[in-house]
Lab assay of single mutants.
Amino acid sequence: HFTSQQLQELEATFQRNRYPDMSTREEIAVWTNLTEARVRVWFKNRRAKWR
């Protein structure tokens, strides 16, 4: 589960860029205190939901 702060950060990034690269995902991981893998999976799932 994600905190509302984490989701806000993830959503804001998603609005700007639906396909963040590795370095962007790592930055998000640092800001949100999540692993890069969790961030990558979140984006994958979010893109699926967005379609």
Rank of each mutant, 00 (worst) to 15 (best):
T24V: 09
A12Q: 10
K44R: 10
E26C: 11
R16E: 10
T13Y: 15
R47M: 04
F14W: 05
W42E: 00
T24L: 12
E9M: 15
Y19R: 05
E9T: 15
A29W: 03
E26I: 14
E36R: 01
N33Q: 10
A48T: 09
L34N: 06
T3R: 03
S4F: 13
A37M: 14
E11R: 03
W42R: 00
E27N: 09
E11V: 04
K49I: 15
T13H: 15
T3N: 08
K49T: 11
T13N: 15
T24R: 08
R47C: 03
R38Q: 15
T3L: 04
R51E: 15
N17W: 08
F14H: 04
R25W: 04
Q15H: 10
V30M: 13
T35E: 06
E36D: 01
R51D: 09
E27F: 11
K49L: 12
E36V: 05
E27T: 10
W31E: 12
T3H: 05
D21H: 04
N33I: 05
Q8T: 10
E36A: 06
F2P: 05
F2H: 03
L10F: 01
L10W: 04
R51S: 09
F2I: 11
W31V: 14
T35G: 03
I28H: 00
T32D: 01
W50R: 05
Q8F: 12
T24S: 07
R40I: 05
K44L: 08
V30Y: 12
H1F: 11
Q5D: 09
N17Q: 06
W42S: 00
T24P: 01
K44P: 00
R47F: 05
E36M: 04
T24C: 12
V39D: 02
Q8K: 14
E9S: 12
N17Y: 06
F43K: 02
R38C: 12
Q6V: 07
A29M: 03
V41N: 13
A29D: 02
H1P: 14
R38E: 15
P20M: 03
M22P: 06
T35V: 03
R40D: 07
A29G: 06
H1W: 12
Q6E: 03
F14A: 01
R47K: 03
V39H: 00
I28M: 03
S4K: 14
F2T: 03
R47T: 03
W50Q: 09
R18W: 06
K44G: 05
Q8C: 12
F43S: 00
R40V: 05
V41D: 12
I28V: 08
V30N: 12
T3W: 04
F2L: 14
A48G: 05
W50C: 09
V30K: 15
Q5K: 11
T13E: 15
F14S: 02
A48R: 15
M22L: 14
A12G: 07
T3D: 06
M22E: 08
A48W: 08
V30I: 14
D21R: 04
S4T: 12
P20F: 03
E36I: 04
T35L: 04
R38W: 10
T13R: 15
R16S: 11
N33H: 10
V39L: 02
A37Q: 14
T24E: 13
L10I: 01
E36P: 07
K44T: 09
T3S: 09
T24K: 07
A37N: 09
M22T: 09
A12M: 11
N45D: 11
K44E: 10
F2S: 02
F43Q: 00
A29S: 06
V41F: 11
A37T: 10
R18E: 05
R16K: 13
Q5I: 10
L10D: 00
R46C: 02
R18P: 12
T13M: 15
V39T: 00
P20A: 05
Q5A: 12
K44F: 09
R18A: 08
E26G: 06
L7H: 07
A48C: 09
W31K: 15
N17H: 06
F14G: 01
I28Y: 02
N33T: 05
R16D: 07
P20S: 01
N45L: 13
E26V: 14
S4E: 14
T35N: 06
F14Q: 01
R38L: 15
S23N: 11
R51F: 14
R16G: 07
N17I: 10
D21K: 05
N17S: 06
E26K: 13
E27M: 12
L7D: 05
Y19M: 04
L10Q: 00
A29K: 00
K49W: 11
T24I: 08
F2C: 06
Q15V: 09
R18C: 08
A12E: 11
N17D: 08
N17C: 10
K49S: 10
A37L: 15
K44N: 07
W50H: 07
V39P: 00
R38K: 15
R16L: 10
T35M: 03
T13P: 00
R47D: 03
K49C: 07
E26W: 09
S4G: 07
T13F: 15
W31H: 14
R16V: 12
T13C: 12
E26R: 13
Q15C: 09
Q15R: 10
W42Y: 02
Q6T: 05
E26H: 13
R38T: 12
Q6K: 04
L10G: 00
T32W: 08
N45T: 09
R40A: 08
A29P: 02
R40Y: 08
F43W: 02
R51Q: 13
R40E: 07
N33W: 05
N45W: 15
Q8G: 08
I28W: 02
H1R: 12
A29H: 02
A48Y: 09
R38I: 15
V30Q: 13
E36F: 04
F2D: 02
A29F: 03
Q6R: 03
R47Y: 06
A29N: 01
E26P: 02
A12C: 08
L34I: 06
W31T: 15
P20D: 02
M22I: 09
R25V: 08
L34R: 02
R40W: 06
D21C: 07
T32M: 13
Q15D: 07
A12S: 11
R40M: 05
R46V: 03
F43E: 00
A37G: 08
L34G: 04
K49P: 05
L34Q: 08
V39F: 05
R16M: 09
F43L: 02
R46F: 04
V30D: 08
Y19V: 04
F2A: 03
E11P: 00
H1C: 08
V30S: 12
E26F: 12
P20G: 02
Q6A: 07
S23A: 15
R25E: 03
T32S: 07
K49D: 08
R40F: 07
T3E: 04
N33F: 07
E11S: 01
V39Q: 00
T35Y: 02
R25A: 03
Y19K: 04
T3F: 04
E26D: 06
E9R: 14
E9H: 13
M22K: 15
R16H: 10
M22N: 06
S4M: 11
S4H: 14
P20H: 05
E26Q: 14
R18K: 15
A48L: 08
V39Y: 01
N45S: 07
E9F: 15
L7P: 01
S23W: 07
A37D: 12
P20T: 00
N45M: 14
F43N: 00
R16A: 09
